[in-house]
Design a protein around this nucleic acid. Structure first.
Ligand SMILES: [Mn+2]
Ligand SMILES: [Mn+2]
Ligand SMILES: [Zn+2]
Ligand SMILES: [Zn+2]
Lengths: 145, 145
DNA sequence: CTCCTTATTTGTAATTATTCTAAAGTAATA
DNA sequence: TATTACTTTAGAATAATTACAAATAAGGAG
């Protein structure tokens, strides 16, 4: 699921008993606006331009709320950072193992197979994560030079 | 790919120019022996029984070597810990979001669809991660009680 | 088998992403 | 507009991981 407009997000905050603040809207729109699954510190850096006093605590609080209400997905990585994805539907994250760049990819046949697999496990799923690790063209060039 | 016997691992160390030490073998066999994708600190706790002076630095050094030579896969999680999987093949990790328990699941149709999807991306993959998040029966009981 | 060289292990300190705390600020309601 | 509870903020605390240098031991040569 991907929230498209601000009103849906505001409704989602209200439905869950959260107040709407400029920081909360800006944090979500930052994640939505970039297509690269940013980390908390990347979000903080970007938003300090518009909100010079915004604190890390607000970034983390908001990210956890957004995750809890289902607006984003949190992805832990081996470097100890977690990154945030505004698309919570079944899709593949193409992750460059050299530079960390992430792009999304969707494949209908894979989605069908995934849903079939979930049925076989007979488990009530609450989410999923499908990563494909590779070296992006930029990083592939690096090594050969 | 799953390494089954100690000899294969020793060969893999030698092929990659690493010395074979009791600690290195024990760490790998600890991960292989349990089926739950342990964290570094869980491995450390377990091995301190057999090697009372084994240090965290050795655990981390060895885990990174095992990952680099392809004997295990490292899985970062949102709680900041990373966990280690001795199965590097295409398979699904069933992850309980309440207690963190992980079990493996394999589905041939899904594997085929995954391979088909990789071909469509036209990328040379270096690995993958497929997680299904759910609540295990034990943790489901907790909330209803 | 013994010696030597060098990689490995160890204990500890340093780093860093994340979480906690409490004071100050503000959204929502009437 | 006044009230109140929720939110934001700055900074301190926490915890997983990494860095470091001294002690140890694997593996090869003799
Ligand atoms: Mn994504
Ligand atoms: Mn697994
Ligand atoms: Zn790259
Ligand atoms: Zn559980």
């Amino acid at each position: 699921m991907v929230l498209i407009n601000r009103k849906d997000l505001i409704d989602l905050f209200h439905e869950n008993g959260y107040k709407v603040t400029p920081q909360r809207l800006a944090i979500f729109e930052c994640i939505m606006g970039r297509r690269d699954h940013p980390s908390a510190s990347e979000i903080h850096s970007e938003l300090k331009r518009e909100y010079p006093t915004i604190s890390q605590a607000t970034i983390y609080n908001t990210l956890h709320i957004l995750r809890d209400i289902g607006a984003i997905q949190e992805l832990g990585f081996e470097d100890g950072k977690t990154r945030f994805d505004p698309d919570t539907s079944i899709h593949v994250n193409l992750v460059c193992t050299a530079c960390g760049k992430i792009t999304d990819f969707t494949d209908e046949d894979l989605v069908k197979a995934w849903i079939g697999m979930v049925e076989k496990t007979a488990k009530k799923t609450v989410g999923q994560r499908l990563d494909l690790y590779y070296k992006c063209t930029h990083c592939s060039r690096m090594v050969s030079e």
